[in-house]
Every structure is written in C-alpha cells, then in structure tokens.
C-alpha cells in the first residue's frame, strides 16, 4: 500500500507540471500528444524484467523496482488527464488571471490547481487501480532459479498461486479487494464528490 502511494506521489510530482505545461500550449499539445500515446502504449510489465535485473542487485532493489513498475503503469493516466484538464481551463479565466497580475504561486493556487483537481482525481483513481495490479507482478519474481520477494499483498498472491495454497490465495485476494474497495469509498469517492461540488466550471 505504501508502494502504491509512493508510485502515485512520484507520478504526480512530474505529471502535474509537465501536463499543465503541455496542456496550456496548443501547439505543444498537438505535437507531443501522439508521441506520448505511443510511449504510453508500451506495456509496463514488458519492461519489468529489464528493470528488475538492473535493480535487484541493489539494496532494497526490488522495492525500488516495484515502485518503478507501478510508476510506469500509472503515470500516463495522470498525465493524459492533467493535459485534458489544463486544456479545459477557459481562456477568459486565464486572461483574467493575467490581467489581475496574479503572481506565479497565486496563479497556481487559485487558477491551475483547482481547475485540474477533478482531472487529477479521475486520473489518480485509474492509476491507483493499475498500481495494485502491477503489485502482483512486481513484488515477487523468480529469476535464475532464485526467488526474490518483498512483503506485500501482491507477493502473497504470486506466491500462493504456483504453490496451490488456495486458502492463502483466497485470503490475500480478498484482502486486496477489501483494501481497494475501502480506499475507493473512503478516499476517492469523497475526493470525487468534492471535485464535482466545488471545482467545476458553470
């Protein structure tokens, strides 16, 4: 769960500034959008063996590799949503912010972040789902006859499957389902509601 959170935060860190920069510039949007869709369509899991080989020798390597895999899977949803959000900011509202001479920080806080907030939430919900999915692959790998794993629900599922340990598999799967549902209801739905209530244009 911490790894899912870490992947989400890391992707937010770069997708928000980059997405806003691309989305605010129509020329950049039309040039980069197709390119990024191609990059994004490379399945993250296909890259994972390479990542794993690089990181596995490092201390805490699989941990980093797992986060990186989740990151690769999640960041695109966020990026595309944020670009869409930045494109959707009405021109006259941007003009108003310019005319009022809002400084950079105020501009971000009163114009850009509230405008893209609903898009971030939508992207994050999809992303988090993808990250959970990736955790099953990322936390437990067998490589040259050796097994590497880190503690996590995903590792439990991957471990229980080949061993035929059905009670463990069932328990782990149920736990992951329950966790995701609880997080969805407790956090994401609430955030989504806030976004719908307060952060929309008329």
């Amino acid at each position: 769960m911490l790894r899912v959170l870490a992947a989400l935060i890391l992707s937010l860190l770069w997708t928000v500034p980059v997405g806003v920069a691309i989305g605010s510039n129509a020329q950049l949007t039309s040039k980069l959008q197709p390119l990024m869709q191609i990059i994004a369509s490379v399945p993250a899991t296909a890259l994972f063996p390479i990542i794993a080989i690089i990181f596995i020798s490092l201390p805490g390597g699989l941990n980093m590799a797992a986060v990186l895999l989740m990151l690769l899977g999640t960041q695109w949803y966020l990026l595309f949503n944020i670009i869409a959000g930045a494109t959707a900011i009405p021109q006259d509202l941007k003009d108003a912010a310019t005319m009022l001479q809002l400084d950079r920080l105020t501009r971000w806080r009163t114009l850009i972040l509230p405008s893209i907030f609903p898009y971030i939430i939508t992207g994050a919900i999809t992303s988090a789902g993808g990250a959970w999915n990736a955790s099953i692959i990322a936390e437990y790998i067998q490589f040259r006859g050796k097994t590497f794993s880190i503690n996590g629900l995903g590792a439990l599922i991957s471990e229980a499957t080949p061993n035929g340990d059905y009670p463990l598999l069932l328990a782990a799967t149920l736990t992951i389902i329950l966790t995701v549902v609880i997080i969805n209801v407790a956090i994401w739905r609430r955030m989504y509601h806030i976004a719908e209530e307060n952060y929309h244009f008329d």
């Binding site: 003009d95 108003a96 009022l100 001479q101 105020t106 009163t110 509230p114 307060n198 952060y199 929309h200």
Partner: peptide, 25 residues
C-alpha cells in the same frame, strides 16, 4: 483592469475571496 463580458470569477472562491486574491497578490 478589465471587466469581462462573461465576468470570469473563480468559481471555487467566494465573492470576497475573489477580490481578496487580487489584493493578496
């Protein structure tokens, strides 16, 4: 300063906050 045809207030700020943001900056 411009008064826009379409008003363009920040929808997530109250009337007072919409003015305050100008003064704050």
């Amino acid at each position: 300063a411009i008064v826009f045809q379409t008003f363009v207030l920040f929808p997530w700020l109250t009337a007072q906050q919409n003015i305050e943001v100008v003064l704050k900056t």
